[in-house]
Every structure is written in C-alpha cells, then in structure tokens.
C-alpha cells in the first residue's frame, strides 16, 4: 500500500535515512521502533510528504506521492505534539477540518465520543492541557475513517484510561484493509496492537518482520524481550 523505494535523506551532511526500502501492506499494524535519532520521525514525515527525500520514491497505492496531496485523503495522522491557533475553539477546529476535507463523507466518531470532545467544544485550544490536546489530535486522526492511520508517539501524553481507549480503538480498527503505522518507544503499549515490527537504527531498517515470526525466532512473548533478544543475536553475529 505504501512503498518506500530506496529512500535516502540527509539533513546537511548528516544522513538520517540511508537507502530505506519498505513495503507496507494492508491489514498490517506496524510498530515503528528504534532508538532516538534513528529516523522514525523523518520516515513518517516522508510518508506524509512533509520531508522530501533526496533520493528514492514513495508510492501510495502504486502512485508516487511527489507533487500531489490527494493521497493524504486516505491518511489520518496524529502528531507527536500538537499546537493550535490560540483563539480557536475545539469545535471550530473540528469544523475547519470537516470543511477542509468536505469530500470525505465517512465519519468515525468513536474516539470523539469516548474522549468526550463534544463537551469541551467551546473551550479555546490554548487552555487545553497536553493530554487533552492529544485526545483532540487522536479524535481528529480517526475522524474521517481513513484507510491509513499514522500515529507518532500516540501514548506519550495520554493518561492511562485514554491510553486504553485508544488501544482498544486501534485493535478494533485493524482489518478492513487498513494500514496502521505507530511509532513509539514504549514497547509495552504496542504488544496487543501491532502485527509487524519495523526496527530502525542509524537510518537503516534493521528488520521488518511479522510479530509472530519474531516470537517464533526468539521464543519470547513480550515485545521488549523480543527486541532485546534480536539485538543480542545481532551482536553475537558480529
């Protein structure tokens, strides 16, 4: 569904992504993990067209994304950090988003209701706490019932209850030909959601494998154990 074909990106002289080749398909929930500075955020931004790679090409449903914005109709994005115009209210924000994507008639209001966004409709975005802003962001990402969900550190600012709600929603969303891409470093949160693990390190894909396969290979169940195991094996090889 989303194919990254030999992507190379550097900021200045420092290469951030070195020759990335990935093919994300439907019905996958991918955990994009790796240490800080491994290029996770850049990868996501490249997929969203915010960062332009120096080499390589990203295709969405077989069509290159360069120079077009329409493919983003199928994407719901929840950024790591949110900041909105100070004097805009929550309901104005949703109103604006609906206007901007008015061709998309599908609505998924599960999170909208679950996070009780309606009730804070008249509040100005400026006075919302970080966690509340994240709830708004999450609800926005799901709002148009998109085929692709991209979540950048979604659990970072959420309280445990909201976290659970989001996880449930994600589990429910998998299937229906969806593709879910989650970047996170809190691996525990990902256990029950993801089907695949994509591990980035120093700008390269260390591995991209189904979770089941990794479990089989490492004989571990928990994700953080699996990763630790894999990294240990790698070291032994060298």
């Amino acid at each position: 569904m989303i194919k990254l074909d030999h992507i190379y990106k550097s900021f200045g002289r420092i290469p951030v992504l070195k020759d990335i080749f990935l093919d994300y398909g439907q019905n996958q929930a991918i955990g994009l993990i790796g240490p800080n500075g491994s290029g996770k955020s850049t990868l996501i931004k490249i997929i969203l067209g915010m960062v332009l790679p120096q080499k390589g090409e990203v295709t969405f449903d077989g069509k290159p994304i360069t120079g077009q914005s329409q493919y983003r109709r199928h994407i719901g994005y929840m950024p790591q950090m949110s900041r909105f115009p100070a004097n805009m209210t929550v309901s104005q924000l949703f109103h604006m988003m609906k206007k901007l994507r008015k061709d998309e008639k599908q609505r998924d209001l599960d999170l909208y209701h679950a996070f009780e966004i309606e009730q804070m409709g008249s509040k100005r975005l400026e006075i919302l706490s970080g966690g509340m802003k994240q709830k708004v962001s999450a609800a926005l990402a799901f709002l148009f019932d998109p085929k692709v969900l991209v979540l950048d550190e979604p659990t970072a600012g959420l309280d445990p209850i909201a976290n659970e709600i989001l996880k449930e929603k994600l589990q429910k969303s998998l299937g229906n030909d969806r593709l879910i891409l989650i970047s996170s470093h809190i691996l525990n949160d990902l256990d029950d959601i993801i089907t695949h693990v994509c591990y980035l390190m120093e700008g390269e894909v260390k591995f991209f494998k189904p979770l089941e396969q990794l479990r089989a290979e490492t004989a571990e169940n928990r994700l953080n154990r699996i990763i630790a195991q894999v990294l240990k094996q790698e070291k032994n090889h060298v």
Partner: peptide, 11 residues
C-alpha cells in the same frame, strides 16, 4: 505544529 497538522491533510 499546526502547519504540520495541516500538511497531513490533503492540502
């Protein structure tokens, strides 16, 4: 950040 959010939309 708001600009980033807008960039994720089909705009």
């Amino acid at each position: 950040e708001f600009m980033v959010l807008l960039m994720a939309q089909p705009l």
